[in-house]
Design a protein around this nucleic acid. Sequence first.
RNA 1: GGGGGUGUAGCUCAGCUGGUUAGAGCGCUGGCCUGUCAAGCCAGAGGUCGCGGGUUCGAGCCCCGUCACUCCCGCCA
Length: 578
Amino acid sequence: MAGSLTAASVGEDVIVAGWVGKRRDHGGLIFVDLRDGTGIVQCTFDPEDSRDAFVLAERIRPEWVVKLEGTVRRRPAGTDNPNMATGEVEIIVRSAEVLNTAETPPFEIEAGIDTDELTRLRWRYLDIRRPEVREALVLRDRVTQRFRKALEHRGFVEVETPILTKSTPEGARDFIVPSRLNPGKFYALPQSPQLFKQLLMIGGMERYYQIARCFRDEDLRADRQPEFTQVDIEMSFVGQEDVLAMTEGVMHEVMREAGHDLVTPLPRITYGEAMERFGTDRPDTRFGLELVDVAAVFASSEFKVFAGALSSGGASKGICAKGAGDWSRGRIDALNQVALDAGAKGLAWVAVTSDGDVKSPIAKFFTEDEMSALRAALGVDDGDLALMVADARPVANEVLGVIRLRLADELEVERHGFCALWVVDFPMFTWDDEEERWTATHHPFTLPFLDDIDALDERPGELLAHTYDLVINGYEIAGGTLRIHDPELQLRVLNRLGLSTEEAKAQFGFLLDALGFGAPPHGGIAFGLDRLVMLLAGAHSIRDVIAFPKTSSGSDPMTQAPDAVSPRQLKDVHLRVD
RNA sequence: GGGGGUGUAGCUCAGCUGGUUAGAGCGCUGGCCUGUCAAGCCAGAGGUCGCGGGUUCGAGCCCCGUCACUCCCGCCA
């Protein structure tokens, strides 16, 4: 009500209820900004209109809850406030009632405050009164509703899956819940509905979705919370193209809801290409700064470090930092440190000043021809800085991927709008040095490329899988796979991951059994709803789009969770705590 | 688990090379004020300098430890 009053409402008698914002007391005249869910309107207390209301207005304080009755009036000439939606009008208050008083809030309830997040979270319900937080939650609702609408329209059925479920190996650390009725046994909270959606396909649901809460007991980040929300989707009797087309259609509608036009079909690149060009599997394609293979330049050069890396099967890659040719040595050294931290042995560089002078610790190893070849390969003009890494191919790519993002910041590269793309064909397995075994790149239920299935045993590192990640502005917004529907193949994959047949049956027996009862071919995708809304809201953390998020140590400053429980509770669930 | 940053009034911050009684703006309280909207003017209250230890004649400042928040790496199939 409050925020929707305009000149068209002039003359109307209205009742508004809400919170007191700013109060401006002129002695003989008092203005109160009244805020409700719709916005803010100025309410004017004049003793000539109502003595009682005026006397009350002298007492009220910020964040008191009041109900005001009065008439909407055009503001006197010259007193309009063009900065507020209701700035042409005001309510002349005839009667006022205090519904509740309030403590002085620990921070001001208004847009654009610069208060520490801990303070905001401790009084999150006050923070939620502020417009940015409110708008983020409203946006989240609109996005969620649009997902529902778009999916229902396409024949999907929303099904709830268990929150109390079974811990399985592979993947993230589970949150576990002790069972009172089963001493010594535990439920696990789902990392995602994963297996249940497959079981729904086997159950003949054919098209399932769920706005699903997921739980992972891992360390937090700006874009990672211990509980988060997926829009989880699965379809039967489909191939990859069907899933991608469905996803693009739904995304188009969702983006439209948020006021953006997503041009489809989206570009696609393979995982391999993403790594070669951007040094990451989730490239931010709002800018170039792509990685270039400079092996041809270094193969025969006198620069032993690079030539050596190449001859031992590695790669040498480079990136051209436009306009960085005049950077100080210190600034380049800082980049070198970034490269070292990212795992490089060093960062080679050639700076060409805007006067055309070449400065480089490695220039002495190059002939004039080689130097021009390097500049041509990377597109280095006067005033540019070339950065090169030679190492095992994955290392060289990843290091330059990190450098690329750093350069985008340093060079203040323009990054606006939304650049979405598919990254497809991830490897089925990734070698884990620490555990000395193959792990599933996406998950163990991913369908590998069947035309190369011999690689499963012979060359597991080369086997690709039917996978697709939707990446926007460097964030993985959705990811999915076609699933294995053959129990024999599923068992082979689990074996390949180091699970014996007995272990596989103990952990995933219900899935293997189910696959044996006529599982249809199926595949799907899951969106990270929090991240998507964060991007759409222009926020920098998913905490900004979650009503009651946790701090980076996983605690809630408002409820004080997690907290100790009583000895009785522990005894009930057969637990002892040190 | 590791690295960086931060921690001083309710909020945001300043506080010099270690030196008297720790300051400012906003907010809050009281007073004045009939057209403000970051209202204005006057007055006032408000401090475990995150916590613990150490060095020193003397610590907000230096040292050690610790806690919290935050960003990143590891981790997140």
